[in-house]
C-alpha cells in the first residue's frame, strides 16, 4: 500500500452565507464520504483549513489571505492508503467538493529515505 494525499480546491464564494442547517448537512456529507474510506481501512488523517491566513513572499512581504493571486484556495486535505494512483483516484469519487464546484487533486506521498 502507498500513501496519497487528496487536496480539495475550490473558488471561494464570498457572498455565500450558509444556514446552520446547510452547515450541518455539509458536515454529514463530508463525514459520510470520509467514513466510506475509513470503512475500507484506508483512512489515515484529514484536516479542514480555515479561511484566514497569511502569505510570506520571498522579498519578505506578508500579504493577507492565502488567495491573493489565485482564484482557488485549498480547503482541506485527506491522507489515505491505496494500492496505486488509480485506486486512490477511485477513492476520491463522491467527494463532496465535486458537488460544490471544486475538484480533488490526488498526489502520491514520496517516501524519502534519509
Amino acid at each position: 500500500m502507498q500513501e496519497f494525499m487528496m487536496i480539495f480546491r475550490m473558488a471561494p464564494a464570498a457572498d455565500f452565507q450558509p444556514t446552520p442547517e446547510q452547515i450541518q448537512e455539509s458536515i454529514q456529507q463530508w463525514q459520510s464520504w470520509i467514513g466510506g474510506i475509513a470503512a475500507q481501512g484506508k483512512f489515515l488523517s484529514t484536516n479542514q483549513l480555515g479561511f484566514t491566513g497569511n502569505t510570506l513572499h520571498a522579498d519578505g512581504v506578508i500579504t493577507d489571505g492565502p488567495y491573493a493571486e489565485v482564484k482557488e484556495i485549498v480547503g482541506g486535505y485527506i491522507l489515505v492508503k491505496a494500492e496505486n494512483l488509480e485506486a486512490a483516484t477511485e477513492l476520491a469519487q463522491g467527494c463532496p467538493i465535486l458537488f460544490m464546484g471544486g475538484h480533488v487533486e490526488i498526489r502520491e506521498i514520496m517516501q524519502i529515505n534519509l
Partner: peptide, 18 residues
C-alpha cells in the same frame, strides 16, 4: 448512528464497525 460510526472508524478501524 451513521455519523458516530463515521467518526469511530476514523479513530480506529475495525471490520465489524465497517
Amino acid at each position: 448512528i451513521l455519523q458516530y460510526y463515521n467518526l469511530l472508524l476514523q479513530i480506529e478501524y475495525s471490520p465489524v464497525a465497517a
